[in-house]
Design a protein around this nucleic acid. Sequence first.
DNA 1: ATCATTGCAAAAGATTTGCAAGGTC
DNA 2: GACCTTGCAAATCTTTTGCAATGAT
Lengths: 167, 167
Amino acid sequence: MSQEESLGKVDVSSTPAQRFEEFLQLRGMRMTEQRRLLLDHVFRRHEHFDVEELLDQLPRRNQPGYVSRPTVYRTLSEFVDAGLLRKFELDGRAVYEHDYGYPAHDHFYCEKSGKLIEFQNDELVELIRQIAAQHDFQVTGHRLIIHGISREGREQHPRRKRRQDMV
Amino acid sequence: MSQEESLGKVDVSSTPAQRFEEFLQLRGMRMTEQRRLLLDHVFRRHEHFDVEELLDQLPRRNQPGYVSRPTVYRTLSEFVDAGLLRKFELDGRAVYEHDYGYPAHDHFYCEKSGKLIEFQNDELVELIRQIAAQHDFQVTGHRLIIHGISREGREQHPRRKRRQDMV
DNA sequence: ATCATTGCAAAAGATTTGCAAGGTC
DNA sequence: GACCTTGCAAATCTTTTGCAATGAT
């Protein structure tokens, strides 16, 4: 894990919207209603989501506030490039989570409930740094998902559709 | 990481073929030429592969030893269920690696060369166990990929096509 | 006015499925 | 012979792209 990743992401001086404005400015891109709408929606609550979930929560075609699927994909991609969101994969689809202004963390993935549960552990971060150093590997980031069953999951929950398990 | 995962996977008494036979037997499934062929091919060398790479290495249609794409997918899935292979995701596609008879490990992913590099670290395994215990989480496995640039990668390599980076 | 952005339709990439023909026990 | 498997074609799912119309600066 790099310095960039472990530090300087929590104490930010600007909002996601402000940071995205700068990002657009710098690249000669424009602030549009769709980008504003997605920005608002995505940073309204702190939770993981995939594109399907996001689209389900947004207005349908021909409704005010509608954003097309391609634009959602394009905009999420921009948010990732702008450092606002992180993207990773779970069960064959992309999952997004807040990055900007949010502390680095890892996840448990409950195979019963299908939920992602965050945790932070400094020892882990340090150990990963050490292991990489031992192997002369320059780290830009890492992704750890611990699979299993959460306490909550032990109380039986259905889980969302998925392809074959990957661990 | 469970006991099952960290122990008892290395010192095995039977070959992948034997284990797969048992698996088939138990489920009333049959040993076919295609399954035998894939078994041989996949366990011939220890390396990571995706379906495309595997298909590239196998005989083409109308050649002896040809296995169709659907059968390759179906059979790899069986190998995973039989505990012979592990499956995970990288850049939007499934990657397979040996599981049966092979020690648990984690990976560096070099973003320059596109290569997966294995490493083993007992401290890491133990720490993950501890963290899970602290959170009352029953672990069945984990997946850690450390992204960055390997020493080798620093000497400039092209890398395979991919979707947007996920870390 | 210029040039970025959007939505639509279609394409692309990965994986899965229905089904008739063929193979295994 | 019973029924599991295969290959083909087609479907599915997720994501991306070409392009004409629209919108932002």
